[in-house]
Write a protein that binds this DNA or RNA. Structure first.
Lengths: 315, 315
DNA sequence: CAATTAATATAGCATAATGTTATGTTACTG
DNA sequence: CAGTAACATAACATTATGCTATATTAATTG
């Protein structure tokens, strides 16, 4: 039978502490316990581990060598303990998070940045998808958290949906767009410019169509589609095209290169929220990530409503 | 309480083997045993280690990390096992061997060389001393094996003395010594040459004195004393001095630069032998060393008697 | 060198952990 | 959908470990 790693650990503790009693103290055990374990080991090895009849307990050469392995074992055990501790407290581990492209790129990635500097040992695996993909991914166990705009009514019962931001869309254009300088803006003004759209299946595409429908425009010009956020921003800035974006995305843009037109459009009924399994089997790291997101979004949405009120006063 | 290193080892085995049953097979345990250990671990950690309800058992990230530590533990445990095995079989460890300078340098060191190439993991710590020192050293536990010429009657009862070579001394001189070329050699011829001696307390000094006494020479010229073997050999070769050496030492000299004069002198009553504690508490490596010495010396002494017989025929 | 002190060894007992076999459940397979 | 292979659970025997109390023994000290 193989040696017991615990015994090697104990051996190293005795050697390092310089005696049975000290070793027992260090390990939080009783001295007779260690004494017997050493005796059994010696019996099984057929070799003495400590020189007999000497009081400042002197380890045999064999004992020294075994103790060296014991130290390795002790190190590994402590490392494992620390891994487990950090893991269960959510300070280490990984979150697999997926969400709609525009939100992920425009808002969530900023929040993730903050999360990562607070929890450097947590790995964030990000991917993209719409509601359907997220539900499937969560069911299949390939993602932990989904982030997308949804109506609570559409959330299947086995999922939890936690809203983090009210749906607020705006019509956005580049800072140099002709409409930016116009004094009074009417909905009809926007109909002559081309549009940038998301893929047809995306919520934002529906929002865009709904907005234009609501003002009677059914046949709109699409100049660009399919790009991810950074592409869209570049096209917005470099052309007269317009698009519909969540206000939060425009809000989060660090530069002033994107402009939200002060036109009131209908709010989508969807709310941005976090999708997860209801049974709470998520990893601690994922739970911590959710906590971070919710608190960050609380302040973000306050900042947004504040800005919007000011904008209203100005317009 | 700290994690149990055995559990981490088991975890790594399960992960590496790809399942509970395979892991159990690899560890030589039953599957339910591992199943329960995993369940207990999960309960204590409060985190799943394998994804629930999936058949090709898939380890959690936490599990993977813990298993990595488990692998370290497994490695260390196996290393310890192998250390213990080699140690108890005498293939590793150390021997502390001490002996009279001339024998150690002239004979034993050659045998040690052979021992070391056969057992490279055994460290040989050599030191020098006469019978008294060796007995003291063995008693104090600072040496394992003593090698010196002794009479069995002089060995204290708590020691074991195992003879390995009969005492045979010769008068030795350099190959260019005038006496080498002389046809018929009489004991009186030697009295005119100076002598190289060992320290006064050494067995070989007594032997030298006894030899000269036996031929009536009480007042002999000492030209050089106190050197170790290589110095003595150099002085022998470069001068007309002579000395008394064990025949085995002359025999072992690789070059023909040393000559044993074909003069029969009395044999010392002492025999070269191995001193050790009687209680057999010696390390396995020391036992193996003793075994090696005895077998080597068996063939050495055969070779010596063979050569001596030939020498007798020739002279 | 006797007496003291401090450390280790042993004894005896209670308990927790492990190991086993038998058997129930469940996820994948054809 | 039935069969199979793998994991989970149950029940019980055994071993290992833990503890306290106490005996030994090696070093120390007067």
């Amino acid at each position: 039978m193989l040696l017991d790693p615990r015994h090697l650990h104990i051996l190293s503790a005795i050697v390092d502490a310089g005696g049975l009693s000290e070793g027992a103290m260090a390990l939080g055990k009783s001295q007779p316990s260690l004494s017997r374990i050493v005796a059994n080991l010696e019996a099984r090895l057929g070799e003495p581990l400590f020189e007999k009849g000497r009081r400042p307990l002197r380890p045999t050469e064999l004992c020294e060598r075994l103790a060296a392995e014991g130290r390795t074992i002790a190190r590994a055990t402590h490392a494992a303990q620390s891994i487990a501790d950090r893991f269960t407290s959510g300070q280490a581990g990984s979150v697999r998070v997926a969400g709609t492209p525009i939100f992920m790129d425009g808002v969530i990635s900023n929040v993730i940045a903050g999360f990562q500097s607070a929890h450097p040992e947590v790995r964030v695996d990000q991917s993209y998808g719409y509601a359907k993909d997220l539900l499937d991914g969560i069911t299949a166990g390939t993602i932990d958290i989904g982030i997308c705009p949804m109506e609570e009514a559409d959330v299947p019962s086995e999922f939890e949906f936690q809203p983090i931001l009210k749906g607020r869309n705006v019509i956005a254009c580049g800072a140099g767009h002709p409409l930016v300088r116009k004094r009074s803006l009417r909905l009809e003004d926007i109909s002559e410019y081309p549009w940038i759209t998301q893929p047809v299946g995306s919520p934002l595409f529906q929002d865009l169509r709904d907005v234009l429908n609501s003002i009677g425009v059914t046949d709109f010009k699409v100049s660009y589609s399919g790009g991810s956020l950074s592409s869209i921003l570049n096209v917005l800035m470099g052309s007269n095209a317009m698009t519909v974006l969540p206000y939060s995305v425009v809000f989060m843009q660090p530069s002033k290169s994107i402009h939200a037109l002060p036109i009131r459009i209908q709010h989508p009924r969807r709310q941005l929220g976090l999708l997860s399994k209801k049974d709470g089997t998520t990893q601690p790291a994922a739970r911590r990530f959710v906590r971070h997101l919710t608190t960050q979004f609380r302040s973000l949405s306050q900042a947004i409503t504040e800005r919007q009120r000011q904008a209203v006063w100005k317009s």
